[in-house]
Simulated assay, not measured.
Amino acid sequence: MSKRTEKTIVDIAAELNLSVSTVSRALNNNPNISDRTKEKVRKMAGKLGYRPNTMAAGLRNSKSKTIGLIVPKISMFFPATIITVVQNKLQEYGYHLIICQSNDSYEQEVALVNTLYAARVDGLAVATTLYTTTFDHFDVFRDNNIPLVFFDRVPKHYQARVVKGDDYLGGYTVTEHMIAMGCKDIAHISGPVTCNLYIDRMAGYKAALKKHKLPFHKSRVFFQELTRENALQSCEKIFAAPPYPDGIFAANDTTAIAIMEYCRKIRLKVPEDLKIVGYSNDPRTEIITPPITSVNQFPEMMGESVVAALMTLIQSPAPAAGSYAEEIIPIQLIVRASSVGKTTKGSKQ
């Protein structure tokens, strides 16, 4: 088999009897080149199968026009929504997105950071793993003044831009809502407390109990990766023997849906016997019966803020390293039948 030869602007110029510089300017939509010439060049480029070498152009300009993005799991509703928004917004600025998945592995995250640095990305946005507690692998970006933005899962003490949800208020609002609905014994299924999300939601939960003079029981709190299987195992423990809680605050919607499934199995009525609230406002919470009360984290707003932070750093003449700024994305409780039992139509609180 013969090796395919890549066509260049030299080949286009030869076919059209134009100078290489004219072809280059035409392909870059230079206003000094006539529309007729641009059209001729584009048609010939298509005919020859010409592909622009964006990497070479990036090296010449010291810009790759690409942004790296690392998320724990692409399949989850919240990061998937953010990915879509970030990609669309970056395209408006002429940037492309390289999407990477850490699978909640610290080792994989470290490898991805190094890979994206070697790929010469112009900026990096990261939602860290559940188990990332040291952040020195990001120093290569910070020390070289390459824009770095953490979002959702973020470090508490690291000099970088941070875009995060108001998870403390989220945990507080959920718990206070359940108390207002008559709950006096609220269990909480949390994620690992190595992650800022669950530290803050747990703190909000405890603060609301304290305000309303309800006791906090360690036996009513579970720390785990928030999977369906782990949720069902926690339910086995919660409902092994009475007294049962009258409410469960689940730190994500996958867990809340699994709790609902378990309640059907043991014939426990929701919300009459048990009230359930999830977190993230996954679309599945609206179509399950009864629909599940959850917390809207506004992923679209977070995605837009991530891009805005990156563009500010990229376009700023000042060095990016060492600068710290934190943006808090609001939350909103979406009340549905799983916690009130009056309606199947979501209302906002």
Rank of each mutant, 00 (worst) to 15 (best):
R4K: 15
E6M: 13
E6Q: 12
V10I: 14
V10Q: 11
V10S: 05
D11Y: 09
A13Y: 00
A13W: 02
A13Q: 01
A13M: 03
A14H: 14
A14E: 15
E15F: 12
E15H: 14
E15V: 15
E15S: 13
L16V: 14
N17W: 06
T22L: 12
T22G: 02
T22Y: 05
L27C: 04
N28G: 09
N29S: 12
N30S: 15
N30G: 13
P31Y: 11
N32A: 14
I33C: 10
D35L: 11
T37G: 02
K38N: 08
K40W: 08
K40A: 15
V41N: 02
K43L: 15
K43G: 03
A45N: 08
G46V: 08
K47P: 04
K47Y: 13
G49F: 02
Y50D: 05
Y50L: 11
R51H: 13
R51C: 05
T54S: 14
M55K: 04
R60E: 11
K63E: 07
K63Y: 08
I67M: 03
I67R: 00
G68V: 09
L69A: 08
I70P: 03
I70M: 02
I70V: 06
V71M: 04
P72K: 00
K73V: 13
I74N: 04
M76V: 02
F77H: 15
P79R: 05
I82H: 03
I83H: 11
I83M: 10
T84L: 12
T84G: 11
T84H: 13
V85K: 12
N88P: 00
N88A: 02
L90D: 07
Q91F: 13
Q91P: 01
E92Y: 06
E92M: 01
G94D: 09
Y95E: 01
Y95F: 15
L97G: 07
L97K: 04
I98F: 08
C100R: 02
Q101D: 06
N103V: 08
D104H: 08
Y106N: 00
E107T: 02
Q108E: 06
E109N: 00
E109L: 02
E109K: 00
V110E: 15
V110K: 15
V110M: 11
N114L: 01
T115R: 09
L116H: 03
Y117T: 01
Y117A: 10
A118R: 11
A119C: 12
R120S: 04
V121N: 00
D122K: 07
G123T: 01
L124N: 03
L124A: 01
V126F: 02
V126H: 00
A127V: 08
A127S: 08
T128R: 04
L130C: 03
T133S: 03
T134M: 00
T134P: 00
D136Q: 14
H137M: 07
D139T: 08
D139Q: 02
V140R: 13
F141A: 03
R142V: 08
D143Y: 05
N144F: 07
